[in-house]
Computed example of a mutant assay.
Amino acid sequence: MHSQMPAPIDACACPLCGQPNQCAMEAAKVSGQPVAKCWCVNASFSPELLAQVPAASQRKACICQACATKEAHG
């Protein structure tokens, strides 16, 4: 039997909606530029929102600002 390799995680895409997450740290890795402070440093993510992130993407891809804001404002 052939085991399928899991799809690679796109660290620049939100694991909830798939849109670009605007992660400054990932952008810096891609561009080779110095790391800028990311918007998420001052954001708070509820345990309920974090629980929606697929296990394979946890701690590998940031939730985007739109999903974080939508959740925060209910």
Rank of each mutant, 00 (worst) to 15 (best):
M1D: 15
L49G: 01
A13V: 05
L50V: 01
Q52Y: 06
T69Q: 10
C67H: 01
P8W: 12
R59S: 15
A36K: 08
S31N: 15
P8F: 08
P15V: 00
A24Q: 07
P20S: 05
C14D: 07
A61L: 01
C14Q: 01
C62D: 08
A66M: 09
A43R: 05
S44K: 10
A13K: 05
H73M: 10
N21K: 05
M1N: 14
A13E: 07
V30A: 14
Q58W: 04
M1T: 15
C40A: 08
C64V: 00
M1V: 15
A72M: 06
P8G: 13
G32T: 09
C14S: 04
G18E: 02
L50N: 00
G32F: 04
A55V: 13
I63D: 00
G74D: 10
Q52R: 09
E71F: 07
H73S: 12
A66I: 09
I9G: 03
A55R: 11
Q19R: 10
L49Y: 01
A72C: 07
Q58N: 06
Q65I: 09
A56V: 10
A36T: 08
S46G: 04
D10W: 07
S3F: 15
Q19W: 03
C12I: 12
Q65M: 09
I9T: 08
V30S: 12
A11T: 15
